[in-house]
Write a protein that binds this DNA or RNA. Structure first.
Lengths: 118, 118
DNA sequence: AAATATGGTATCCAATGGAAACTTAGGAGA
DNA sequence: TCTCCTAAGTTTCCATTGGATACCATATTT
């Protein structure tokens, strides 16, 4: 393996930067089920702003992880879908959100203990 | 399951925020092998600053994912180790770094294609 | 006396993030 | 015709964050 994320200039750092983004993780998780339109994503990912959703989708599209399809309806319909490459990644990012849901109580308990002792 | 990362106020979002951090992912990956001292981490995680490393370790400790041990040597020795809880998480975050290393070429190709068409 | 090592904090400035307003384009309704 | 509506963004503004750099305490080595 010639790539190593622990080297500053390694291009894999770019990927890590992309994934090390709460919103990208949530978007990929949603698209893993089925293609979704812009405003539908905005509604389903509670708390994301239009600007950030737009930016995240653009970056994910550039990385070849999601595809963007425009339909000439009125008003225009834009649908985002996960690509085959994105699907391989979605496996690991959904593992991440699942871990969060399964272990949040242990984390919260640890935080309380830490805060009490400080 | 009562928790849902897609709800803005769900505490699992806190966990996602923590993991959605390039540096936290790299630190956990390093500590998964063996306990490591502060400056050793700093050397091995190319490009991280002392301030950020210090902050990340403090947050990971608060979340119960790493433990911190101080030894009264001269100069003082501080060793960071992964906890059992952290170890369960390390499985998924190393999957992430592995994905980055295995798929970076596909991502770079997608980016070039995207940039050419724009 | 000066340099070295450890494990940090403090300070400063640039970059990022989110909230809210604005935009574009084509219907639908009055 | 004039106004309103929706989808899918873009722009603007301000607060927070991020990283680079300098600094600190302590003790040994040169």
């Amino acid at each position: 393996m010639e790539y190593d994320v622990y080297v500053q200039t390694c291009p894999t750092r770019l990927v890590l930067d992309r994934l090390a983004d709460k919103w990208a993780v949530l978007v990929l998780g949603k698209l893993d089920d089925k293609p979704v339109r812009f405003n539908q994503l905005k509604r389903e990912i509670d708390g994301i702003s239009q600007k950030v959703l737009s930016q995240v989708l653009k970056k994910l599209e550039r990385d070849g992880l999601v595809s963007r399809s425009v339909f000439a309806t009125v008003p225009v319909t834009v649908e985002y879908a996960i690509t085959p490459l994105g699907r391989t990644l979605a496996l690991t990012v959904t593992a991440l959100t699942r871990w969060a849901e399964e272990n949040i109580e242990a984390v919260l308990k640890a935080q309380q203990k830490y805060d009490r002792s400080a």
